[in-house]
Design a binder for these strands. Structure first.
Lengths: 219, 219
DNA sequence: GCATTACCATAACAATCGTCATGAAAACCT
DNA sequence: AGGTTTTCATGACGATTGTTATGGTAATGC
């Protein structure tokens, strides 16, 4: 048999990227294979060739968008440590440019489309758990005492002041801010977004005392 | 001309309530006038009689859901003051029962459908601003000093540690928690939700020192 | 009591969408 | 070079959807 001309996966990624652009602009409900093909400068024959169905195309697009967003966050976490690392990840996630703005809008569209299907809700929950685990790792070295029950004597299942709960809260707060900024008509400047997000995240994460290393190294 | 038999607005509200149930269960993209009429035990003739179009029906449903949610929050705020008031509003909003869970799921679906339309995005932004204003009111009496620039000497436009920014952050955090809990397959118990939300909100809102009035009056 | 109007079921229409079959052109392997 | 396979355009089909027209029934006003 003959080898495929181009990279099959790369071709699928190109289609998925075009799909993200169309979704961010015209929404997920009005996404049409014909419109998507037109955005690619092609016809629906391309789409049916690389994807068995529209659902498969949309699912693959969703995976790519989330994975890219998550990978970018993990990459940003490698360069620093401590609070700077948390700040770096937050700054990397915020919708400060067109690419990230479309990313968050597409994620919002996918989240909205997940309410109608238990299967999609479970997948959404799995993705959220990955975010929570990531932010738990970011927050753990910042929480003052690991097990020194300051206020809560018992290590509550998943509630009180442990690092897991704090990471979950930070993740939800950052996600909420990113979504809100991404949905704004006139985008907020990157400096405003980063300043606001850092201030609120720092409020949420303890250890702010003795943080007189004001406006630290991170540029 | 003859008078209308029943209350026209009430009939529209009944239809909108049925629409919320259908949307929370099967999603917004798959919402069909025929399905909605079947859920009402009627046919599409009812819908076309009370709404000029499907878009009008959906828009009215969205308004009703948001207004009910917002009114419930304001009502919960009337009974208490100080930090208890904030706690009461948070507990009132969390998806601790089926009704509130469907409310949040429908709100998520509407948020997702708003990404494709600049008009809907603007309406979404207006609704968010109402949430921010409400939470700013809740948080203002809790912020230590009104204008005593503790860290920020200049009153930044909307960034730093003022009550507006804090209210916005609390609103986004609460919204994020509510959405996350509402999307879970197996719902978290009301006690868990309230305990987690209060702990994180209290972490975000200053003045936690001297709050040794542990687990206060609110039941 | 009669005309009018609200209320709603029914059915048909036009448009749109995902899917699939067909076929042609280009690339690949031997 | 020839056969094979990938790649993709084209067009048609069936299903579904929002919308509209039509008609009937019951309630209301005069």
């Amino acid at each position: 048999m003959s080898r495929p001309r181009g990279d099959h996966a790369e071709r699928r990624a190109v289609i998925a990227r075009a799909a993200t652009a169309v979704i961010a602009e015209r929404g997920l409900e009005t996404l049409t294979l014909r419109d998507l093909a037109a955005a690619l400068g092609a016809t629906t024959g391309v789409l049916t060739h690389y994807f068995p169905s529209k659902d498969a195309l949309v699912a693959h697009t969703k995976e790519l968008v989330f994975d890219a967003c998550y990978a970018r966050a993990r990459l940003a976490a490698e360069g620093a440590s401590g609070r700077d690392r948390l700040h770096a990840v937050v700054a990397e996630l915020l919708p400060v440019d067109d690419e990230r703005r479309t990313t968050w809008r597409v994620l919002v569209a996918f989240q909205g489309s997940a309410v109608g299907s238990a299967e999609l809700r479970r997948a959404h929950g799995r993705r959220m758990r990955r975010w929570f685990a990531l932010f738990e790792d970011l927050v753990t070295p910042l929480v003052p005492a690991a097990g020194g029950g300051r206020v809560s004597p018992r290590p509550a299942p998943g509630d009180d002041g442990n690092a897991a709960a704090l990471g979950m809260a930070v993740a939800l707060l950052v996600e909420g801010m990113a979504i809100h900024f991404a949905m704004l008509e006139r985008p907020l400047s990157a400096a405003r977004q980063v300043a606001f997000a850092r201030a609120q995240v720092d409020r949420l994460v303890p250890g702010a005392r003795r943080s007189s290393r004001r406006r630290t190294v991170a540029r």
